[in-house]
Design a protein around this nucleic acid. Structure first.
Lengths: 106, 106
DNA sequence: TTTGTGCATTCCTTGACGGGTATATAACTG
DNA sequence: CAGTTATATACCCGTCAAGGAATGCACAAA
């Protein structure tokens, strides 16, 4: 669940697809594999990475392992993003001021 | 500046360090290399990745290439994060309700 | 024009990652 | 128990990314 694991987990497009899929609702491995066009082993491995990053939680239902999104690590990303968001907002403000102060000549 | 390039760029710890460094102020390559404990070529290559992801802009100052953070792509990350943040907030709300409705027995 | 500085690029090697196949494990079914 | 379903793991292989050393290139100073 280290910060690095989180970034690594989300760096892969397939894993982001899985995460997006789980945003809808929890799903068993097979369903995830099919929906993402992955082989079952591949899906299992990606889910393992997501699990180790804390992004996903498993609950067992008979033979199925239902994976659900755990939103907690998202907060970490959000926190990381915070200082940059500040910068971004400052940029927008500056742009806004420039637009305000410029006579409308077009 | 594709979404994938952005994730790939930020997936590397060294590159996140560079980005954090540039949050302070723009810097020439050599300074970045030293601050991050990177060789000059390595720093150049990482900066190239960041540039191609749109995270960094260069301005030339004599022989120096001063790199500055461009916060625009951050907005893309923020947008990506949005639906998960919703989920996260719902979780907090649910927790809050549970705490409210539970008699304080501790 | 020669010399020096700052940076980019190339080549090479190595290690990590992802995909596929085959196999192991666990749980249900009869 | 044997057989089937759902998933995990092991192994192999191809690819790709990162680091280091050496080199190329642009600009500046003398």
């Amino acid at each position: 669940m280290s910060d690095a694991a989180l970034w690594t987990a989300l760096a892969d497009p397939h894993r982001r697809a899985i995460v997006a899929l789980l945003l809808e609702r929890p799903r068993p491995v097979g369903e995830i594999a099919e929906a993402c066009g992955l082989s079952q082993p591949s899906a299992s491995k990606h889910l393992k990475v997501l699990r180790e990053a804390g992004l996903v939680r498993v609950s067992q239902d008979a033979q199925r392992r239902v994976h659900a999104l755990d939103p907690a690590p998202i907060a970490a990303l959000d926190a990381w993003l915070e200082p940059y968001r500040r910068l971004w907002n400052r940029s927008l403000d500056a742009l806004g001021r420039r637009l305000d102060e410029t006579p409308a000549d077009t």
